[in-house]
Design a protein around this nucleic acid. Structure first.
Lengths: 243, 243
DNA sequence: CGAAGTGTTGAAGGGTTTCAAGCATAGTGG
DNA sequence: CCACTATGCTTGAAACCCTTCAACACTTCG
């Protein structure tokens, strides 16, 4: 059984327009649990999907590789996020899922979820909705990669993480834990770790944000938001209850 | 009524594992038609979705803007593609849809489609499947933006277009019509039009591909594919019949 | 305490942008 | 049919942003 206060169920319940009881069937599915250490792959490109994975604790990422070993994190996954929702409908993964920190993952049987979707329209719509929200994040990340400078790209990501972490209760107004090496941040932003380092220094010089010992301090949230041109519309928080 | 040989229905019918008759209800929906000229916006960021739009003729794109006017095409839309599938479930568009050529669009009433999805499981799954495939394209584009050089990025896009156009019968083995200015190609790849020009010259020098008068000639398809590291898995053509 | 990973900084190099100019092409009106 | 115009294509030179390479400091952990 999914525990009632697991991040996954908590996030789903936060949809403002859903009656609580509608999610009970989802919580009643049999469930497995997996523990991962950093750099450990949960699924690999080309695998045939057999489970639906939900990140419960820690950070992970959807990763795409280039033949020469360079990689890109298409999506950063936080507690409560579904790791591989498109595995429900596609025949093979076209990305990997890699743990960025120690993390624990719930796994639901893929067919059990599909069957539940067939019976329960609410659950089906909810999963589709989550997929579209993830898609919106990806669109925004693509805009960053295509047209924003390294500085704005980093600032924008820090803003996005602030809101996503706040929603699940992992941030305070003055900052949040950011348990990623600068190299991993670089893989999320399409930059090099050296340049991430220099860019953090710039943000610190501008008195906007500073990173130290895996803790991000927001020195001037409003200034950071404005300078990055960050608007939270694309997170589609409108349908969500406050955290 | 959607005409039986409209690109949209044609594409849906091409799912190999679907009995043909299952799609009849979709073809029976009432339908509107819109004509657009280049640079004309079909929907705008922030709009409230009221229709589901299907591109029937011409090229279009999902566009995201930066305050300073720079823009990025998140997805290139070809005949048969749904322009705004996430509008079915989200409250507001977080992107615009802009015509790149003259084009015609079918519009289905959003609620009619949602109602149909409620009745007809096959249609619902098919639309979800299309959304996931689009998502996969976006992931691949993000990898290009993050980690591929301009040359590889362009070569990769040309390969992708070759397969997508072939599927809908718009390409020959020696090339295809590419009715986009170099500036629009730049907006799709996160580059400048000047650099797109130089990059095309490079591909021509390498005897791989050449663009002239809106026609892309594939001089060496296999060489282009290999040099770009192009593998078509992410297009998820496996569930499709041959064009 | 040693080792490995991560953070930090400098210098040099390269890929892409910017700016600017000239050229080709297509469409328009006289 | 021919200016005339607008738009897009092409090319060069300079500037800029980011990468690469290298060295060293710091932290963490066995």
């Amino acid at each position: 059984m999914i525990h009632a206060d697991a991040p996954f169920v908590a996030r789903l319940r936060s949809r403002a327009d859903l009656p609580e009881a509608q999610l009970d069937p989802l919580g009643a599915l049999p469930i497995g649990r997996v523990s991962l250490t950093p750099e450990c792959q949960l699924v690999s490109e080309g695998d045939r999907p057999r489970y639906l994975h939900v990140l419960e604790q820690g950070w992970a990422a959807k990763v795409k590789m280039l033949p020469d070993g360079r990689r890109h994190f298409a999506t950063l996954l936080l507690p409560g996020d579904i790791c591989d929702i498109d595995g429900l409908h596609l025949h093979a993964y076209d990305y990997g899922v890699v743990a960025l920190t120690r993390c624990t993952v719930s796994r639901l049987d893929r067919h059990a979820v599909l069957d539940l979707c067939d019976e329960n329209r609410i659950v089906a719509q909810l999963l589709t909705w989550l997929a579209f929200v993830e898609n919106a994040l990806l669109n925004q990340a693509a805009l960053s990669l295509a047209r924003r400078s390294a500085r704005d790209r980093l600032a924008h990501l820090l803003c996005e993480l602030m809101l996503r972490l706040t929603r699940i209760g992992f941030a305070r107004v003055d900052g949040y834990d950011l348990p990623l090496s600068q190299e991993k941040i670089a893989d999320a932003l399409g930059l090099t770790s050296v340049h991430i380092n220099r860019t953090f220094r710039q943000l610190r010089t501008e008195q906007l944000a500073s990173l130290s010992r895996q803790r991000l301090s927001l020195l001037d949230w409003d200034g950071l938001r404005r300078s990055a041109g960050f608007t939270p519309d694309y997170l589609h928080l409108d349908g969500m209850r406050a955290a």
